[in-house]
């Protein structure tokens, strides 16, 4: 409990890391819900990886241009990394969505190729960048330790924006995801609403990757919605449960990691996996119990 008191203290040294982690935990499942419902889980794996390659490319640019990066301030680096992340993510989403709409070829094959090439490219860039040790190797591993006030503010604003857009246009985003034909007959601009859905996913993934790395981003995009889906009866429940599971797990994960000196991101993901497994067992037991009662 002493650790918990420390974490909750306003003077806690890593408080920005806690806030960032919890923000990502709450926000990622909100767009993850659409990835799961649209059966785009593979896209959820590939996008964070592509996004992190964007970060790697953006941070390698000054090196390639012969600029000295040793004295640059973290705000510029963060903005540069965000630009790289969002550019790569949106470009990948546009290309993948376009190919998806054409309906030709093997979508899983395309996503798998994008994932593995992006991962390999990140490793290559890291191996040739002497600033890798300055922090973004930690980012790739999911170490959420050095989060500045600027980083935290940027993350909070971006995720609040995502939340507002999702809240305002949930009805339209749900309609085009569930029944495109109905959306067309109701004269909705399905291309615009599809684009907005992908934009929200891309934006959230970029922010999450920049804050917690690709592995953890994927974990928070996927596992909370899958867990919530076991129990949710309505879309409202599905969205709220997923977000709550993500937010609470990220806080408890941070607590466990701090208590036992573990890397935060991987601890969060393993915790989410345990919650999912336990929920699955509880659901099965409840089903068996109900079946027996009926007999």
């Amino acid at each position: 409990m002493e650790t918990l008191r420390q974490i909750l203290s306003p003077d806690f040294l890593l408080r920005n890391s806690v806030y960032t982690s919890v923000l990502i935990g709450f926000a990622c499942p909100l767009v993850g819900v659409f990835l799961v419902l649209r059966r785009l889980i593979f896209m959820g794996v590939a996008l964070p990886q592509i996004s992190s390659t964007g970060v790697a490319v953006a941070l390698s640019l000054p090196l390639w241009l012969g600029m000295d990066m040793s004295g640059h301030d973290s705000q510029n680096a963060h903005v540069l990394a965000f630009a790289g992340s969002i550019a790569f993510t949106l470009m990948a989403i546009l290309v993948l969505a376009f190919l998806e709409r054409r309906g030709r070829g093997l979508p899983e094959g395309r996503l798998g190729t994008a994932y593995v090439v992006a991962a390999a490219l990140s490793i290559l860039l890291l191996s040739k960048n002497r600033y890798a040790e300055l922090g973004w190797l930690d980012l790739m591993k999911g170490e959420i330790i050095t989060v500045s006030n600027f980083d935290l503010t940027l993350t909070a604003i971006a995720l609040a924006l995502v939340l507002v857009v999702l809240g305002l246009f949930h009805k339209e985003l749900m309609l085009v995801s569930f029944d495109r034909t109905l959306a067309v007959t109701l004269r909705k601009n399905v291309v615009f609403w599809d684009a907005l859905t992908y934009l929200l996913i891309g934006f959230t993934v970029s922010m999450a990757v920049l804050s917690v790395g690709p592995l953890i981003s994927f974990g928070f995009l996927l596992i909370p919605p899958l867990t919530a889906h076991l129990f949710a009866r309505t879309m409202r429940q599905f969205t709220i449960f997923a977000s709550l599971i993500g937010g609470v797990a990220s806080f408890i994960g941070f607590w466990i990691a701090y208590q036992w000196d573990l890397p935060i991101g991987p601890t969060d993901v393993v915790l989410l996996g345990i919650i999912y497994a336990l929920s699955f067992v509880v659901k099965k037991l409840a089903f068996l119990f109900q079946s027996k009662s009926k007999r």
């Binding site: 799961v36 419902l37 059966r39 995801s177 569930f178 029944d179 034909t181 109905l182 007959t185 889906h229 949710a232 009866r233 309505t234 879309m235 429940q237 599905f238």
Partner: peptide, 15 residues
């Protein structure tokens, strides 16, 4: 428009 029910994904938790 009344689509064929198989066109609607059962994954969506909608009443």
């Amino acid at each position: 428009y009344v689509p064929q029910t198989v066109e609607l994904d059962p994954l969506f938790p909608l009443t």
